[in-house]
Every structure is written in C-alpha cells, then in structure tokens.
Design a protein around this nucleic acid. Structure first.
Lengths: 176, 176
DNA sequence: CTTTTTCGTATCGACCCGATACTAATGGCG
DNA sequence: CGCCATTAGTATCGGGTCGATACGAAAAAG
C-alpha cells in the first residue's frame, strides 16, 4: 500500500505522508480540520505535522486560517491546487483496479471485517477514534436531510455526515 | 497500520522500514534473501535499501555474507539479536488482537479477497511478485515431504515452501 | 577478449520524524 | 480580577529515509 502511495505522488514530488494529509483534509469535517486532528489521525506528533503543513502551504496546496472563536486554533482546507493534485494523482485508483475482479459481495464482507478490526484496533490503543456519522452513536436524525451531533450540539447537513470526524464513537453493531 | 508499526519499533529506536525489512528477511527463502529482493519487496531503490542494511548491520541485527557462486551477490539473514528483537517487538500482535472478535470464517473470506487483490495489484504494476510455494504454479510435489521448484530446479523441504519467494507466479485459482 | 548488464555501495540533498523548548490563547480557581 | 495550568501551534536540532547519480566489481553477452 505504501509503495502504491509513493508512486501516486512520486511524479509531483510528493511524499506518502503528503498525500495522506491531503486525503484526510479533503474529507475532514468541521471538528477535524486542524493540525492536532491530523496529527492524531496520522499517529504523528504535532511538531512533525506542523512541518508537513508548512511544506504543503509553501506549495500552495492548503490554506490555513484562524478560528474565529478560539484564536489558538488553525483551520485547514485544501486549496484549488490541492484539490486538483489530489484528483490527478488518484491515490486510490490502484486499489480500485486491483479489486475489479472481486465480486461486490465479497468486497462488502471484507470491508465489513476490516472496519470491525479497525474499531477494535483504535479501542485497544485508546487513540482518537475516526469515522463518519453513518456509524457514530452521537448522530441523531432530525429530518429527511438534517442531522444533529449529540456530542457537539450542532446541526449537520447530509453531506457533512459523510465526512471524517475525530470525535467519532462507534455504534454497537449488529453482526451481519 | 503504519502507526502500529511505528509504535512496535519505537521503543527500540526502530523505524517502520527497519521492522519491515526484518520481517521480510525472517521469511525470505534462498532465492530472496538479497538486498535487491528486499528493495523490490519494499518498493524502494537498491541504494536506499543499502543504507538501511548498513544501519541494521551496525546494530548487529543482520548478517551479510557473500554468495559462493555469484560473488556480486550478498546474502542476508537475521542474527540472533535480530530474531530476538523481532520476537520482542511483535509487530503483528496489534492486528492479532484487533481481529479477536471476528469469526474465523469471516477472517478467511477477508484474507482470500485481500490476497486476490494483492495478486492483481502486483500484476498491474508489473512489479516483482512475492508469495510462497503453496500457491505458486512453479511448485511441484515430489513426495510427502519433498517439493521441487520447476523454475529453479532445486528440491525444497517442507518448511522452505512456506517462505517468501521473489520468483513467485500465482496459480490460476478456482474461486472458492 | 571486449562490451554490456547486473549487484551492490558511496555520496549528496530534500525531506521525515521525535524531542525539546518556546509563544500565545484559553480555562479554571481563588 | 489575577495567577496558573492546560492546550494549539511553531521553531529548532539531530538521526534517519529516500531517490538520483556516480562508481566499482563480477558476471554475462557478443
């Protein structure tokens, strides 16, 4: 997997961790688009991530701006150039191709097992949990299109419920 | 996965790639215990791998010796200290724990799907294929305990057929 | 007996990464 | 309100990764 990631970004002079950061920031929700969240996600220290973000900023791939309420916090998002690079490097394409001959049913089963392993892995290491609202126990459905995060109290749009969140708490799942 | 690998080796000051190299060398068969094979396996250049091996040698974790027949080739194997470090760092333990609540049947299905994806991935990138004799089309069974590699012409013991080989060629598999 | 190829090493520069030390802003508590 | 602990982020340093390039030695090709 790392070899593929290295090749995807190699043409543009990107290290694997650069692409991982862009992929994450492209999917992070409003609670998770900060340097600290990225550090937790990657399992690196905040100092290390700060350096990576400095580089990505120099290359114009991300934008950084202060949070209005807590002025210590830096908010991150991809710039147009960052989105373009992510689209062109297609880091997930090799795996999409590699699974083309596997039946959708087998893929679903494998994904389900891997997702379960990931939750257990995150619990074991008492690290920050990441996931989206679809399987988060904080998530409440208010109406057809409006959701609500019971932890933070904010109302969330449908698209935002499909982003990655750092305050994720896995539902107790019924084994399929 | 990388985060886990980093934590496994962090105590001993080992980088993820160091553990990956030790894991590989611990399982590589007689055709695959060379710097070039390791470079192919890791998807790195031979120059890079040469540096890593230099470091592992300095720390006494591996042994290097010349090949008797082709004197350009360097053979690699783990030293006693290398085996001990691998045993103590237990890089696969987090994943063994993470899958403890998943039924053996679901694990088998997931492993099967992932293995198939890996073969396709390796074919797509025309990289060196790696695998063991169990599913290699070169492998011939001579007797109860003796096998033979049809590509190299050598006879192989039972244990050696379970090692990683760089001249692996996947069997056309009957989908289970 | 020359090329050519292959295996491995050496060196350089950009970058990764953790540890440490630091600043700035927030929050708690009297 | 003022003091202090906590938190978010940055700066710097040193060991290590990694690819590109150049190199030497042995094997293979001619």
């Amino acid at each position: 997997m790392r070899t593929e990631l290295r090749k995807s970004g190699g043409d543009e002079g990107m290290q694997p961790v650069h692409l991982q950061a862009l992929v994450y920031l492209n999917r992070a929700n409003r609670y998770s688009n900060t340097p600290q969240a990225l550090a937790d996600y990657l399992g690196l220290t905040k100092g290390t991530v700060s350096q990576t973000l400095l580089l990505l900023d120099r290359r114009g791939l991300i934008e950084r701006f202060e949070d209005d309420i807590d002025r210590r916090v830096v908010r991150l998002r991809l710039s147009a150039a960052g989105e373009r690079l992510l689209y062109e490097s297609q880091p997930s394409l090799p795996w999409q191709n590699a699974t083309r001959n596997i039946s959708p049913n087998r893929i679903r089963n494998a994904v389900s097992a891997l997702r379960e392993a990931l939750v257990t892995l995150q619990e074991d290491n008492e690290g920050t949990m990441f996931g989206d609202c679809q399987t988060c126990s904080w998530c409440q459905k208010l109406s057809q299109r409006i959701y609500r995060c019971g932890r933070m109290g904010d109302r969330l749009s449908g698209p935002e419920t499909r982003r990655i969140c750092r305050i994720y708490k896995a539902k107790v799942e019924e084994t399929a």
